[in-house]
Design a protein around this nucleic acid. Structure first.
Lengths: 341, 341
DNA sequence: TTGAAAGCGCTAACAT
DNA sequence: ATGTTAGCGCTTTCAA
């Protein structure tokens, strides 16, 4: 199958390549009859401009890169969705890569994107990432990066985040307001900032409501998995039989807790209330259904993309780029694993 | 930030562009001292070849396209993962798009990929797709397509599938062998072939074991969602109080059934056994845990990619391309929602 | 061992 | 109204 180029069309119509090009782009200085002939033939031959040639000229690929720490996490699914939709509205296409929560991978994937001459990058940092030279280098090259979800204040660029601390504060507060007095917290490992922030929010809420912080009430779920919640619950109940609330860092963990508590015959929420974090479909399926914090992935993907496109336009128009930090608000979604207010 | 090109390096070193190009590619006819100087400077300046210029010459983008009917379906997550990993091993990068189960979207996304000059495409058909001209056109252009999961026999290309019929047969057979005599089936809507095949497998197993087929035992879950399973169970129990097994088309549906049965105080698996389809993490979390059919998404993505790369290589080497159809085998994963054999 | 030149396909300023 | 030309950045053949 011969690929159709301007040259073919020009030859068939006895025109110059330049004229054909202009005719297709509706330049005013081409006669309408020529335009018609060219456009008809182009359609008939199913002419598709060569995107490489175009990109080479325009110095623009209309491709953006999206780096996800781990695709197998529902939250990022929603992010992907938001990004892909926003991009397609703007005529962009998205290259999706995952860092697998590894620093080395993150570096590699970023390089891959740069090699592919993407126009800009959306990035959520891996849990391991604590140095940022690889990112700053790219920004210095003039390629705009927007950080989302897992970010660092040490990088000077636009960002889209949720205030994990505030969200966790609200979650804990919600438990307190619905009558809990002794609340355990299952947090993730020490590294990523989000885990720290959620923990801080938990602590802050206790303080605010004059509940003394007891560090033995804080448990670490290494994977933040269902199994973590399920297994840690034994320890929690052994250590603190009089617990009346659990704030779990993810819905998956919360679901594990919930299942184990039921297994132990502990009434939810009468005896122990549970609140999760994420609000994915699972929280609607458990019985009782799970009270949780809504973490708006789609919106985050959408807003991060919009920020990126805005910067891209500013660059194109030679306007100085100004970075923005957008904070997306979260809210508690009350369901049946907590008592009513 | 000035982008570094061969021209810059050539000028700085007082060499021709051609020489620089060859030096970087380690051509044998360049003196090693020149090579050294060029390579050092290139490294120092952080030279990255312009991929558009390269693609324009090589007529190869090193990008493949992946079309997913719906990203918000766990199965495709695993597929994405398999594809992205396989691609990165081969130095390819993946453009991911979704058709949202819409024919129009599928056409649009395919066109987008072609416009971007991707080297090949992995495609799972949307539920709406019953005409295939848009796909055949692309294949005729010389762009290889590999169909996966939701395919059509009417398209002449390589395919990776699971035998849904056999898988459903095995699932139903498993229920029968563990003592079920009256088995309901919750199937998906009539259109996509997979739903039909699973239904056929169910029917075939009944026949084989001399259980007469009763069409009132077949229910349709429009979304194949948790809610479908949950809600249809009322009807199932009302219509057939003496049911002793349910074969649900997805784990999500099966989970809905399971929850409702528990709510109704019907013992699982003593009174009613349940088997699902997919084997995602959810089936490990329910109580009782869910017996299901393993649907290997990662493997499917991996194998489809490998097939595509194989064809790509054949094309590059001018070898005639031969299409393959690979069938991935599935197996029943026994858990606690069915009786033991 | 190096350089010059053509060409991949497209665009746009300039010339006719 | 149309054609010519230079150039985007890179590769590679051919000439020096």
């Amino acid at each position: 199958m011969e690929v159709v180029t301007l040259k073919h069309i020009a030859k068939r119509l006895n025109l110059s390549i330049g004229t054909v090009s202009k005719a297709l782009k509706d330049y005013p200085d081409i006669s309408s009859s020529t335009k018609y002939r060219v456009q008809e033939l182009a359609k008939a031959l199913n002419y598709i401009p060569n995107s490489f040639a175009q990109s080479l000229r325009y110095k623009e690929s209309k491709i953006i890169g999206l780096i996800i720490p781990s695709i197998v996490h529902h939250f990022f699914l929603y992010v992907i969705n938001g990004v892909v939709n926003a991009a397609s509205e703007e005529g962009y296409v998205v290259l999706i890569l995952q860092s697998d929560e590894s620093f080395e991978n993150e570096k590699k994937q970023l390089q891959l994107l740069v090699d592919k001459n993407i126009d800009g990058i959306l990035l959520s940092l891996s849990n391991e990432t604590i140095r940022f030279d690889h990112i700053k280098q790219i920004i210095n090259k003039g390629i705009p990066i927007v950080l989302y979800d897992k970010i660092s204040k040490l990088i000077n660029c636009s960002k889209v985040i949720i205030d994990d601390r505030k969200a966790a504060f609200n979650a804990t507060e919600y438990l307190i307001k619905t009558g809990c007095k002794k609340i355990a917290h299952i947090r993730g490992p020490l590294k990523p900032q989000t885990n720290i922030d959620r923990f801080m929010g938990y602590k802050k809420a206790l303080e605010e409501y004059n509940i003394s912080f007891d560090k033995t009430l804080v448990y670490i779920g290494e994977q933040l998995s269902y199994a973590d919640g399920f297994n840690l619950t034994d320890a929690i109940i052994d250590d603190h039989p009089d617990i009346d609330g659990v704030f779990a860092s993810t819905d998956l963990v919360a679901t594990g807790v919930l299942t184990k508590l039921k297994e132990k015959g502990i009434d939810i929420p009468e005896k122990v209330s549970i609140i999760g974090f994420s609000n994915w479909f699972l929280s609607n399926i458990t019985s009782p259904t799970l009270t949780t914090v809504d973490q708006p992935g789609y919106q985050m993907g959408k807003m991060a993309s919009d920020l990126l496109f805005k910067e891209l336009n500013q660059i194109k128009q030679g306007i100085p780029v100004n970075h923005e930090v957008i904070e997306i608000s979260t809210k508690v979604v009350p369901r049946s694993s907590t008592k009513s207010v």
